[in-house]
Simulated assay, not measured.
Amino acid sequence: MSLNLCIDWGNTNIKVALAANGKLQRPVIVSEESILEQVTGIIESHKPDKAILCSVSQHSVELEMMLRSKIKGAVILTGNTNVPINNAYLSADTLGADRLALVCGAHASYPGKNNLVISIGTCITYNLLQNNRTFRGGAISPGLQMRFKAMNAFTSMLPEVKKYDVDDALLLGYDTETCIQSGVVNGMIAEIDGMISMYAERYTDFNAILTGGDAPHFAGRLKNKIFADPDLLMKGCDLILDHNVPLPQ
């Protein structure tokens, strides 16, 4: 049995999970301050055969060095890493590792489909994996908090709305804060629905898959049919790790 250690170092959260023979355990969120201690503890107690680090931020160099020293089969995922799909993205050097992991996860979960993976986090990324197993790209737009912060940063009078309830956002705002909340939340809903509709018109056998930290707030508010998978990135990391570091027979 192969035991894999998967680490997702995002802009907002760091998640760690173990996977055994393609079955992912529930990821846990760890802090940057305790990441070395916690991952070391996992390695010592569970003794994973392989490890992968998917990072879209300035991750700890010490963590990377520790993984390489303690686990022979350690992979640091980049846009140039060998993957079990065709990566036709033209600027692989600037491709976020998370986007590559997401489309690999979609390939594992929905093979033979045109899959649009929508990850709602710091940014919203739209990532199309065609049914010929080819990833070409998609789109990137600002995420929820980035939109709230941008309106404050680039105007003189608009406040930064820090306390908001996405699930209860009004359509008709009754003051400046609720108007901003309406514009941000309902604007994102309209954007995501619109993007799904445009892709669905172009591609047959089409799936839209929603993931990312803010995805639960939007999954039930979209008009289009979607699949929700909060662990899609980790599933992709596990698949990429097995693809790059097969166990000896």
Rank of each mutant, 00 (worst) to 15 (best):
N127A: 10
I140T: 08
M65L: 14
C104M: 07
T81I: 09
V83S: 10
N80R: 15
V56P: 01
L77Y: 04
Q58M: 12
Y126D: 00
A139T: 06
N87S: 10
G105E: 07
G105W: 02
P142F: 03
N132G: 08
D93C: 05
L77D: 07
I120T: 06
G41A: 13
H46P: 03
L144V: 14
I76S: 11
M65V: 13
G143M: 02
V56L: 10
C123T: 13
S141L: 00
A139F: 11
G138T: 04
N131Q: 14
K72M: 12
T78C: 08
P48E: 11
I124Y: 04
I140A: 06
L144S: 01
F135C: 03
N115A: 12
G73P: 00
T81K: 01
I71W: 06
A139R: 05
L128M: 14
A74P: 05
H46Q: 15
Y126L: 13
T134R: 08
A97S: 13
L144K: 00
E64L: 10
A51P: 04
I42M: 13
F135P: 00
C123P: 03
I85Y: 04
H59D: 11
T94Y: 11
D93P: 01
N127I: 03
I140H: 05
L128K: 00
L63T: 08
S91T: 14
G105C: 09
F135G: 00
L67N: 05
L95A: 08
K50F: 06
I124R: 04
L144R: 00
N86V: 14
I71G: 06
Q130W: 02
N132M: 04
G41M: 12
E64F: 01
D93I: 11
I43Y: 08
N82V: 14
A97W: 00
I52Y: 02
A139W: 09
P84M: 11
C104L: 05
A92G: 06
V103N: 05
A101N: 05
I76R: 06
A101L: 05
S69A: 15
A139Q: 11
L102H: 10
S45V: 12
I124V: 15
L129A: 07
A51H: 03
D49W: 04
H59G: 12
V56A: 10
K50H: 12
L128W: 01
Q130C: 12
K50W: 02
K50Y: 07
L77G: 07
A108R: 13
I71T: 09
R133T: 12
P48H: 08
V61W: 11
C104G: 02
A139V: 06
R133Y: 11
V117A: 04
E62T: 13
V75A: 04
E44R: 14
C123H: 10
N114Y: 09
N80K: 15
I85T: 11
S60T: 11
Y110W: 15
V117Y: 00
E44K: 13
V61A: 14
C104S: 05
K70P: 05
Y89D: 03
N114Q: 11
N80E: 15
I120A: 06
G121K: 04
G73W: 03
M65R: 15
V83P: 02
L90N: 13
H107I: 04
I76M: 12
T81N: 01
G137T: 01
A51I: 09
L100M: 10
C123W: 07
N132F: 03
Y110G: 08
S55P: 06
G96D: 02
